[in-house]
Design a protein around this nucleic acid. Structure first.
Lengths: 332, 332
DNA sequence: TCGATTCACTTACGCGTGCCAGTTGAACGA
DNA sequence: TCGTTCAACTGGCACGCGTAAGTGAATCGA
């Protein structure tokens, strides 16, 4: 059938024997119009029969905003968790009639401004920290801006939507039982500070609460030799470090490799706990104890936040609460 | 300044003291119009001064297509390589004035059809196999469809744009020197067949060329115990398998874990080679030998393909050629 | 019986573009 | 002097939609 030409609401109107306006009212469920059930049904049927899908472009042009939520990806590697989060966000937004679309703003070939000016998304969900001026400009253009990470707008700092703090705290609390001195394996990638700092703060806080000394923080590169250096440092510390909270599983894997490089082994010589439960975690020698977060809950929460904000509801500033799960294996 | 209202081409026209049409001609570089350099400059300046960015919605409405390239993500986990590919595709398309946007079609909250009907992308880049009817429907709607994976349209099978074959071949050739019987560690996730089959075929072909027996294919689950079963099978085969080509690094890691579970070790008891060079590969015990592909080349190639297709050029059906690198470590 | 109200719609406008089909004014040839 | 040509523009339509304002018929209260 219809070769090329797209089905418009005018086609539906003709098919249903009503005017275009009526079609629009029915399909959008406009409340203050008295339209009898019979007519409604005719319109619904006609639309279905023709396979009508409204043009997002026309709609966006008319209303001044699209139904697109733009996700800004961070420039650090997209691994397991982040990948899953993207898929889950897509689904969560789809359930709310929004199309989630991600854009890597890593090495912008075009300035970010062009991107959002062009697509006029209803909202922008920043999965990374980003420029305040940019955020302000978006707001001025009528775009809702939601940040998942730490971020401040016009100087007024607001808490991150997704809080990293509890992750470090959980790691520390797990290790604290047998271990009296903890170390923190900090990632070797500058961009990760937004995540790493709050996690480390969580560890610090628990140490303080339990009257333990400050955690011994060392940057751990993702290679066995470099990691071995950090391990040597920990073991030589005074008092010696016996348990390591790693920024994530990859860093934890590096610590394990460092240990192995020195002929040592977890948890005997040094206990290690990671974050994320990547595939390699359960396959490591020894299998890695790790913290998993409920990314689906985060995705839903984030989506709801955005939807509510778009709906005009005022949102509490508190972070989302997402379940954390401790997956205990052998490394700690 | 301009609180709320967006800058339109009419504003630019007023600022430059010309008509809207002239602005449009200048900014779009329409060839068959005689416009003196002086006027061009005035328009360019005015546009820059006002910070004009054309409305994608209006443009899309007018032209019937947007400048968006929709990437359809597969439903398998987005790891390292795929994540990097997404970022690189974004950049590659950006360099060509296109906005790359990905959508996870994993568990479609809405039918896929609604998505692309709504956003009318200029092209769809499927990173996974997908429905022929769907593809046909898109084509009918004037959307260019490009497939990165295996895919056939209306029954006529066409070769995949990104070929997986050479990966398996390279793995096999590397192992073939000391090893006379190879095994293939097949992933335990049905969706991965599109990738796994061609890779396995590559291994098969090399085995045949070198007068070696057929590879011994076993499905390897991502846990040590399950993987150990597969390992036992290989070692007990007749003639025994001594080298394993794994579908990817995670599967290779599983094989390593299986070996370790049995008190064995690579490469002494069984050589293992993976694909992707994920972070965990270099950190494994022993460090994993693996095949890396040049995803940046793939991204650029894919982007160019799409851009050329949109430009009306007829494209050769041959797959992209991407560099393959063998990263030799200790496991094989 | 008749104005008023309600119902069930329809008419018409404008969102910002791209681009076709003019229009203007100057230069030029006869 | 007057067409004719051409460079350099401009006017205005259509894309598909949401929605404010209007319209004719039916119903109703007095």
């Amino acid at each position: 059938m219809s070769e090329g030409r797209r089905v418009t609401s005018a086609d539906v109107a003709r098919e249903a024997g009503v005017s275009r306006a009526t079609v629009s009212y029915v399909l959008n469920g406009v409340p203050h119009q008295k339209i009898p059930e019979a007519t409604r049904q005719r319109v619904w049927d006609a639309a279905a029969r023709l396979g009508y899908a409204p043009s997002a472009a026309a709609r966006a042009l008319r209303t001044g905003r699209s139904e697109i939520v733009l996700g800004l990806l961070p420039d650090w590697p997209i691994e397991h968790v982040l990948g899953r989060l993207i898929q889950q966000l897509t689904n969560a937004f789809a359930e709310n009639g929004l199309t989630f679309v991600v854009h890597s703003s890593a090495h912008p070939g075009r300035p970010l401004r062009d991107i959002w000016k062009a697509m006029t998304p209803a909202a922008v969900l920043a999965l990374q920290e980003f420029d305040d001026l940019e955020a302000e400009a978006m707001r001025a253009a009528g775009i809702e801006v939601v940040m998942a990470m730490h971020g401040s707008v016009r100087g007024e700092p607001r808490p991150p939507l997704v809080s990293e703090h509890p992750i470090g705290a959980l790691q520390a609390r797990h290790l604290a039982a047998p271990h009296r001195r903890l170390g923190y394996a900090y990632p070797d990638l500058p961009g990760l500070d937004v995540l790493a700092q709050p996690r480390l703060d969580g560890v610090r806080k628990v140490c303080a609460e339990l009257d333990m000394p400050e955690p011994d923080v060392r940057t751990v590169p993702l290679d066995a030799v470099g990691a071995a250096e950090a391990v040597k440092g920990w073991l030589a510390a005074d008092p010696p470090v016996t348990g390591i909270c790693a920024f994530n599983d990859n860093v934890a894997l590096a610590v394990l490799a460092g240990l192995s490089h020195l002929g040592l082994r977890a948890p005997r010589d040094l206990a290690v706990i990671g974050v994320d439960d990547i595939t390699g975690a359960s396959l490591a020698q020894p299998p890695l104890t790790t913290v998993v977060r409920d990314t689906d809950a985060i995705a839903r929460g984030l989506a709801r936040r955005v939807v509510d904000t778009l709906g005009g509801k005022e949102i509490p500033a508190e972070p989302l609460r997402d379940g954390l799960l401790l997956r205990v294996r052998e490394s700690a």
